[in-house]
C-alpha cells in the first residue's frame, strides 16, 4: 500500500497518478484498435477526451443539483477541485451526452467505436486494480491462507491482486492485435465490447466472494454480485443478438 508518493515537498496521491497513467495507456491502445476497426484514431481520441470533459462537468453539475442548499451557502464550492463533490450519475450522463453529440457529428458507428474502446477499457481495469492496491481500497476478507496479506488490522485475501490478475487476463484477450479480438471483429462488430463486458462482469461476480468491503443485503447476498449477474445476463443476450441477428450466415460462411 502506497497511498502517497512523497517527492520532496510534493505529496502526490499515488492512486490518482496510477489512474492517469492507466488512462494514457488506455488511449494509446484504443487508438491502435481504432485503425483495426476502420475508424480514425484522432476522432476516437477526441471522443474520449470530450467524454472525460463531459463526465467531469456533468458530475459536478449533478452534485450541485443533488445538494443545492450546500452550494447556496457556499457558491464558491462549485469551482472547488475536491473530487468528493462529484456525482457518478451526472458524470455518466455528461460523458454519454458529449460523446454522442461528437459521435453523431463525426458519423462514428456505434459498434466499431465500442470495439475500439474495448482494449482501453480493459487497460483501465488493470489500472483501477493497481490504484486499489496503492490505496488499500477494495480490500479482501480475512483469511488464514498462506498468501494472505496484513491490511486494516487483519490477515486478508489480497483481493486487489486477484483483481489485477483477472483484469490483466481480460486485457490479454482483447489486445488490439490479438487473435481473439480479430476473430470477434470479423464475426460481428460490437462482439469485442460485449465480450469484454461479459467477462468483466463474470470476474467481478466470482471475485467479490473474497472482498471484505462488500455491501450486503438480506441473507448476506453481496449487492455487487447481483449487479454483475444482471450485467452478465444483459451482455450474454447482446452477444447472442449480435451473433444471430442476420440468421446464422455469419457463422456458416467459411472462406
Amino acid at each position: 500500500m502506497l497511498p502517497i508518493l512523497q517527492i520532496g515537498p510534493l505529496a502526490i496521491q499515488t492512486p490518482g497518478l496510477i489512474l492517469l497513467l492507466g488512462l494514457w495507456l488506455a488511449l494509446s491502445l484504443s487508438e491502435r484498435a481504432a485503425s483495426h476497426s476502420g475508424l480514425n484514431p484522432n476522432q476516437l481520441y477526441n471522443l474520449v477526451l470530450l467524454g472525460l470533459l463531459g463526465g467531469v462537468v456533468g458530475a459536478r453539475l449533478g452534485y450541485v443539483l443533488r445538494y443545492p442548499e450546500a452550494f447556496a451557502a457556499s457558491p464558491a464550492s462549485i469551482l472547488s477541485p475536491n473530487p468528493g463533490l462529484l456525482d457518478a450519475w451526472g458524470g455518466t450522463a455528461g460523458a454519454l451526452l458529449l460523446g454522442l453529440i461528437y459521435g453523431q457529428r463525426k458519423g462514428l458507428q456505434l459498434r466499431p467505436t465500442l470495439d475500439a474502446l474495448t482494449p482501453g477499457l480493459a487497460m483501465l481495469g488493470v489500472a483501477v486494480g493497481f490504484s486499489h492496491l496503492a490505496s488499500g481500497a477494495a480490500f479482501g476478507s480475512p483469511t488464514s491462507l498462506p498468501w494472505g496479506i496484513e491490511l486494516w488490522g487483519a490477515i486478508r485475501h489480497p483481493a486487489q491482486v486477484y483483481e489485477i490478475i483477472a483484469a490483466s487476463l481480460i486485457l490479454l484477450l482483447f489486445t488490439p492485435n490479438g487473435k481473439i479480438a480479430w476473430h470477434l471483429r470479423t464475426l460481428a462488430p460490437g462482439l469485442n465490447f460485449w465480450g469484454f463486458i461479459a467477462l468483466s462482469a463474470l470476474s467481478r461476480l466470482i471475485m467479490e466472494a473474497w472482498r471484505g468491503d462488500s455491501e450486503i443485503i438480506l441473507g448476506g447476498v453481496r449487492v455487487a454480485q447481483l449487479a454483475a449477474w444482471l450485467v452478465l445476463a444483459l451482455s450474454l443476450w447482446a452477444i447472442g443478438r449480435l451473433l444471430f441477428q442476420s440468421g446464422s450466415t455469419i457463422l456458416e460462411t467459411e472462406g
Binding site: S37, L108, L110, P112, R185, T186, L187, P189, L251, E252
Partner: peptide, 18 residues
Amino acid sequence: MNSQPTPTSQRAPRILPG
C-alpha cells in the same frame, strides 16, 4: 452515432454452434 454494423471484408471460420 449510427448503429449499423460495419461491413466486414473477412468471414470468420465456423466456430460456434447455433
